[in-house]
Structure formats: C-alpha cells, structure tokens
Computed example of a mutant assay.
Amino acid sequence: MKTTVVFAFFLLIASTSLSAKIPSEITLATTNWPPYTSGSSPDKPGIVYEYITEILAKNGITLRIERYPWSRAIKMANDDNDIHGLLTAVYEEAPKLLFTRTPVMNYKVNFYTAIDNHWLYQDQRSLNSMPSPLCIILGYGYGSPIDEFIHDEANKTRLHILTGGNAQQRLVKMLEYKRVAVIIEDELVIESYTKKSTNIRFAGTLSDSPFYLAFNPNLNWSRDIVELLNQELAEPENLQRLQQLVSDYTSKQQ
C-alpha cells in the first residue's frame, strides 16, 4: 500500500512537470483557408481556429494565430522563431515538423473545371487526359497521385503555380476567367468562395484525407504539446464539439 502511494505521488510530480514545460501561450501559423482557418467575420474565425483554441484553453494555454501565404507559413514554422508550428498541415507539406498522430479532422480534395469542360478525374490514368494548365498553390500537399504528377519534371509546363496571399480566392477567379483549365481544392473551401456560382463544375474527387497540427521539433516542449493534443483530439466530447462547429459553419454557406 505504501509503495503504491509513493508511486502515485511520483506520477503526479511527473505529470505536473510535463505540463509545466508547455508555455501558457503558443503561436501557430496558417493561411486563409475558409472555413477551416478563417471565416466571414471576427466572431467566426474558422472551424479549426475555434476548435483548437477551445481545446488549449481548457488546458490553460492561449492560442495565437498568424496568417501568411502558405509557403511562408511553412518556412516560418520550420525556422527557430516565435512561430511554434502550423495550425493545419499534412506531412508532405512540412516533413521536418513534429506532427500529432491524431488528426484534427478530414478534408476532401476535389477537381474543378469550367462549366463547359467535360473532363472528369476517375483514377491516376485520368491525369494523362487532364486539360492544362492545372492551377495549384505553392507548398500545398494534395496527396497521391497528384503530388507525384506535380513533382514530375515532364509535367512542369502543364502547371500554373500560385504564390502570395489570397491564393484560394485567386485560384477560383483564375478558373472562372478561364485562365486555367483545372483547379484542386477542398470542397468546403470552394463553397466558401463560389456560393451559388454556376461558372465552375465538380470534376471528381482526389481524396478524403486527414490533416494534423505540427510543431517545430526543436522546441523543448514540442513533444509534450503533441502528446496533449493526441489525447484531446481523440476525446468524444471534443469530437462532438467539432461536429457542432462544422455544422455551424457549413449551414451558413447554404
């Protein structure tokens, strides 16, 4: 009995020490990616923005978000500065960062073309007949097989790569004005920018994939925050809250 009490005491000390390593405020970089990391008003800053802010607040941690063009956000998260990590990311985008094992949520990557273009993505072979140019955003990870297609030097002339701010909005405008033939983006993001537009059409789904939080591994508390988030993101209560947020944001797009 005495041994059990002593062991429990040391576990408590270890737990307290672990929590103490995580600062009371952390800063994550992101980009404008509605409705996930941004929204239509200050009181609706984005699904993931609200979700992670609430989770961290329950653990006494304040979340600060800074928005940049995506390629710059990735660079800043990798560098040793005041940016501690990324609010949303997939491994292919930032392989040097430390990722949560538990995903934040899923996103669905679709192809879109102009309304009078009848090309449809069905499988990898469809990429051979895909009209060009395909417009992508610098630094984005789209998943297989499109990532392999993008990095193939033979396809370089078939791509139009966007950099800088407001990339998603510009992506949609490029397609609406027929300056590009195909774009790829998450369906909720497209709905945020197109509303009831009839100028573009769905042209197939690439993937329904998870995304994660990621932290600079050089931070002495990065593994502690990742372990904390691994637990919190799997909690049924938090998952229920996430579904409420998704419903709230998507219903406003209808």
Rank of each mutant, 00 (worst) to 15 (best):
K178H: 15
L233C: 00
V48H: 03
I55T: 02
K44D: 14
N155R: 12
I26A: 01
A114F: 07
N166E: 15
L213S: 00
I115Y: 14
Q124I: 14
T250W: 02
V182R: 01
D43Y: 09
R170Q: 06
Y51K: 01
R223W: 08
L86P: 00
L98N: 09
F202A: 02
A8C: 12
E187D: 14
L162K: 01
D152K: 09
R101S: 11
K178T: 09
D80H: 13
Y121Q: 05
E191I: 02
L239A: 11
N238M: 00
P133G: 05
L97C: 06
S129A: 11
L120V: 13
I52G: 01
A167L: 01
S15C: 12
R201C: 04
R170Y: 05
E237N: 13
S126M: 03
W70Q: 03
D79H: 15
I13C: 15
D224I: 08
N106I: 03
M1Y: 07
A154L: 13
S132I: 09
T30C: 03
K21L: 10
E185S: 13
I61Q: 03
T4M: 15
E92N: 05
L12K: 05
D123E: 06
Y177M: 14
L98H: 04
M174P: 08
T62G: 00
N230D: 11
F202R: 02
D43I: 04
K108A: 04
Y51E: 06
